[in-house]
């Protein structure tokens, strides 16, 4: 049974886990259930956690594996094109955003652009750039070499630059 210190530390990462779950599920309604499931598994296998190691990374790994186990078939969705990037010009706006709404629209488009990335590009980008995990930790979570993590993050950023091209050009001052 997990001790008090373990439970207390695990709860500290709740917001980060939920944030990651939202982007992993592409803002689906399953995010809260996924987080709850993660905590139940973490508590059940708390004896496997090595004190002194990074609990945050361990929790992210459980969450991702739980997501992949139960959402795998849903991830097999047709790509927009062979590499998941819209073919041809695909501006994020059809009309110029109203004055004062540009920041909100940018948030929305960033989320949409992120959602277009396949999971194995989206995850390392989120974990490294948003959650601040080291590349070694991300590699451990994704169970792949550090070099693969670097490559996927690089390609994820490349795709985001393409997807957000129109908006970036429009808002460059």
């Amino acid at each position: 049974m997990a001790d008090e210190a373990f439970r207390k530390e695990a709860l500290q990462h709740l917001d980060a886990l939920h944030n990651f779950a939202v982007y992993l599920t592409r803002n689906g309604p399953e995010a809260p259930d996924l987080v709850q499931e993660t905590y139940l598994r973490a508590l059940r296998f708390s004896h496997r956690f090595e004190p002194g190691t990074h609990m945050r990374a361990w929790l992210f790994q459980i969450l991702r594996n739980t997501f992949l186990t139960f959402y795998r078939v849903r991830e097999r969705e047709p790509a927009l094109s062979e590499d998941g990037v819209p073919e041809g010009p695909a501006p994020m706006f059809h009309d110029a955003p109203p004055e004062g709404a540009s920041r909100l629209e940018m948030h929305t488009d960033l989320e949409r652009a992120l959602a277009l990335l396949p999971e194995d590009f989206r995850t390392p980008l989120l974990l490294a750039e948003i959650e601040g995990l080291s590349l070694d930790e991300v590699a451990g979570i994704m169970e792949c070499p550090v070099g693969t993590v670097k490559s996927r993050i690089f390609r994820a950023k490349e795709r985001l630059r393409i997807t957000l091209k129109d908006y970036i050009e429009e808002h460059r001052s």
Partner: peptide, 24 residues
Amino acid sequence: RLLRERLPRHPAPATLRAAVVEAV
């Protein structure tokens, strides 16, 4: 940096927090 500064954060809703606290 663009993502860190402009991507919305989604903290756990109160209902989820309550459910997790109870579960642990």
